[in-house]
Amino acid sequence: MITRVLAQLGSVGVSALSSIGRAHLLILNMLAGLNDIIRRPRLLIDQLYSVGVLTILIIAVAGLFVGMVLGLQGYYILSRFGGETALGLMVAASLVRELGPVLTALLFAGRAGSALTAEIGLMKATEQLSGLEMMAVDPKHRVLSPRFFAGLISVPLLAAMFSCLGIFGGWLVGGGMLGVDQAAFWNGMQGGIDFSDDLVNGFIKSVVFGFVCTWIAIYQGYDCIPTSEGVSRATTRTVVHSSLAVLGLDFVLTALMFG
């Protein structure tokens, strides 16, 4: 009984380690594909459209509503202490430091990450990746690398867009509906938000999240069992692993940056 449990634990451990090894080899291969992208930027541009541009709508709508809710909640709490003039700072700091990068990454994993996994998994299931190999074209460079760099570039831009629209939403509610002084709203934000502490740290977070989410999505698609069930499971794993990775990394990065 104990031997069987140990054997199963060992098997799970070996399988997990080998999966981590394959994922790292894949990321090295994708990074090496940068040469191909420089030679043919069209590959990257196409992916920027499908990975980034097609995610704008959900990011814009989510950013706007999150900002509006922040404006509403912030106003009710701050007004108890007569501090509603700090609403702009509160909304902006929350978005730029935390909510912008984190929620963008979570939404990106759900919209673009799952699509990447499904697309690559189906390409594997329909032998398109094998077909490329037999045509002497490396699918890691031709197919995976442009998608990886597109994700890496898109997430910080989407996070910036999320934060901007969130601030706009906060202003709509605070300044427009609840009558917070407009000058105080913007001045508080201008004086309280620091370029390196807030904007740069938020940007670093979104780059890290973009790297991790896209890596997970592509790896899950490339490593999936090439059946409909395998692709379906890989897509689910992409969303779950990406979300957990983003939340865990957010804590680590926050502790390092602001701790």
């Binding site: 390409m123 329909t126 032998e127 077909g131 037999m134 002497a136």
Partner: peptide, 18 residues
């Protein structure tokens, strides 16, 4: 990869890029 340029392969599914 050089050798594969001189080989063709017809996959069971066709493996066309969709």
């Amino acid at each position: 990869y050089q050798l594969r340029m001189r080989m063709g392969m017809l996959f069971q599914s066709g493996a066309l890029l969709t």
